[in-house]
Amino acid sequence: MFLLPKGNPLFENLAATKLKLPEVMTKLSSGGFTGYASFVFQNSTTILVFESGKLISVLLEQTNGARQSGFEAIANLAELMVTSSSGALNVYKLSKDLTMCIHALLQGEILYKAQELKLIDIKALLEKIKTDQLNGCLRIYTEDRSAMIFYKAGNPLGFFHDGSQDIETSSTESQKIAGMPGAKIDLYATQSVEELMGLDLLEVTNIQKIWETAVARHQAEIEKLSREREERDKKSTALKLMELEEQVKAIVTEYVGKVGRGIVDKEIGDRGGNACLIDEVGSAAFLAGIERAAKLLISSTNIRQMMEKLNQTILMAKTEI
């Protein structure tokens, strides 16, 4: 994502996931805000450019370089705000002219793209910008450095380069980068401020609806995941309970004989299923039932041993399940 001049910061590092997009939009729009808002998430950044409260451009760029704009970008932003665990909102107030240049940089018409500087007559290009009274941005960059020159009606508004916080009046850095081997340029043009004022994405986009859809989708996703997890947990618990039931049957059968299985089945059945084995009250009642039945079949010494084994097995299972 481009580094943009910060101008006058209104808010920085607000927790984006705690905000509601329609409220943010309304606040910026109704306040006649000019500048840009950036939503920074782990894998993407979204820039919303406002001119006098009108949303003139939206650009979402992912860390892998993929870009989205307009409605698609807004929808994805809403999605990110709802689903992300962390994110930050920064709001920077800029002049109308600079905002226009930011718009040009983000969504303007591309006149040149990745043109090697040594193949271009830079003086002629700068002359052309002046004579065409271009509104836009010239970006000069190498592999690891970049600088931007913003133009209004062909005249430079200021210079901005990575590492700086705001617009500068000195062109030294830009010239330095331009002199580097392998330097390239991009040239973006845009309409004038007056023409841009005719655009307002907020008028053609139902932010509230987009937000509600994102929230509903996220809610549905959470519910689905929760249901799936519940199902998984249920299955896993049922499996563990079955294993425990078999262990209990094996212990009782070992001491009581084959009728032991029937006794366990009956005691479990009386208590509404094998879930009683891990329930505090249920397991106590179950063990009491087994002991009572065993008294008719085996010696008290064997009953003691059997009950100890059963208690240990059930206790272990309780900690696992």
């Binding site: 009581v256 004989g257 084959k258 009728v259 079949l297 085996i298 010696s299 064997n302």
Partner: peptide
């Protein structure tokens, strides 16, 4: 027959 493998059988 039902409890023949029990101690009390």
């Amino acid at each position: 027959v039902a409890i023949k493998d029990s101690a009390i059988s």
